[in-house]
């Protein structure tokens, strides 16, 4: 009896927490006129995918989506590749300044973007790459790299030193030991880090707001917000459809790869 009551209470809390997102999905399939019903209906009287159709064919949403995909993938590949090598160096090599560097990484991980954004903006203008996806990839490394480096460092610290030693004794060079032994062991960590980096880039807003102001280079975050601002009267169902679409990659990651997300948290998300 107590169990049942507890379960009921727990699930009520869960559903209340999830309600905004559930409401988002519901709104996105309601016909426009049903939104302005007073009192509002909970279940749609009629389910329509009209908003999704309009979103995809009558708005620049697909361009934004493409930009976001390119942007997030490029940032992730660049950052994770560089950070994997860097983390390996921080964990397995000894050289002066290594500890300091590790501390610096943690420090930069906490830096507020607003401090970096203005100089970065000037830098992009000066480099002549302002208003392009490239400028965003460069800017995104400023938060994604410290993050990835810290996360991967935690993961790699968990790989026993003896493994690399064994490979060296067995005749591998240090680079071979890295590719043959360390990399396969770090793979789950690399996947976690990639997912987190991807999500961070996918969700980023401020840099995109400041550095890009043409629809052709806008990612989803600023793109969808510009749809909100520019429309004459706000079409909530369209925006909710956009929100759902925007969250699709996250839902996929969540459904399929959640164990990597929680693992990433254990390694670095909380620690730093």
């Amino acid at each position: 009896m107590k169990r049942v009551a507890f379960n009921l209470m727990a699930w009520t809390i869960v559903l209340v927490t999830a309600f905004p997102l559930i409401w988002m999905v519901i709104t996105s399939v309601k016909p426009q006129f049903e939104l302005f019903r007073i009192p509002p209906t909970f279940w749609p009287e009629e389910i329509t995918f009209e908003h999704y159709r309009r979103l995809l064919w009558e708005t620049p949403f697909l361009t934004f989506m493409r930009n976001s995909l390119i942007l997030s993938f490029s940032t992730t590949v660049l950052v994770v590749a560089v950070a994997t090598l860097g983390a390996h160096s921080l964990v397995r090599f000894r050289y002066p300044g290594r500890e300091r560097l590790a501390q610096l990484v943690l420090f930069t991980y906490l830096l507020p973007s607003v401090v970096l954004i203005l100089p970065l903006y000037l830098m992009m203008v000066w480099l002549g790459v302002a208003n392009s996806l490239l400028s965003l990839v460069i800017a995104y490394t400023s938060f994604a790299l410290p993050y990835a480096l810290w996360l991967l460092r935690s993961f790699m610290q968990g790989i026993p030193d003896d493994l690399e030693s064994a490979a060296l004794v067995d005749g591998a060079t240090r680079m071979e030991a890295f590719f043959d032994v360390i990399l396969p062991q770090a793979l789950p960590g690399i996947i976690s880090t990639s997912l987190f980096t991807f999500i961070l880039s996918w969700n980023e807003y401020l840099y995109a707001l400041v550095l890009v102001n043409t629809d052709s280079a806008r990612p989803l975050t600023t793109g969808v917000m510009s749809m909100l601002v520019s429309s004459f009267n706000i079409e909530w169902s369209l925006l909710m459809a956009a929100s759902v679409m925007m969250s699709v990659p996250l839902i996929i990651i969540f459904a399929v790869l959640q164990k990597y997300l929680t693992r990433g948290f254990g390694a670095g998300g909380v620690k730093g």
């Binding site: 026993p160 003896d162 493994l163 030693s165 064994a166 490979a167 060296l168 004794v169 067995d170 005749g171 591998a172 060079t173 043959d180 032994v181 396969p184």
Partner: peptide
């Protein structure tokens, strides 16, 4: 790898 030695580790260090 060039010393013509082999080593067994306490942790075994199997890949």
């Amino acid at each position: 790898g060039k010393r013509d030695i082999a080593m067994v580790f306490q942790s075994y260090a199997l890949y």
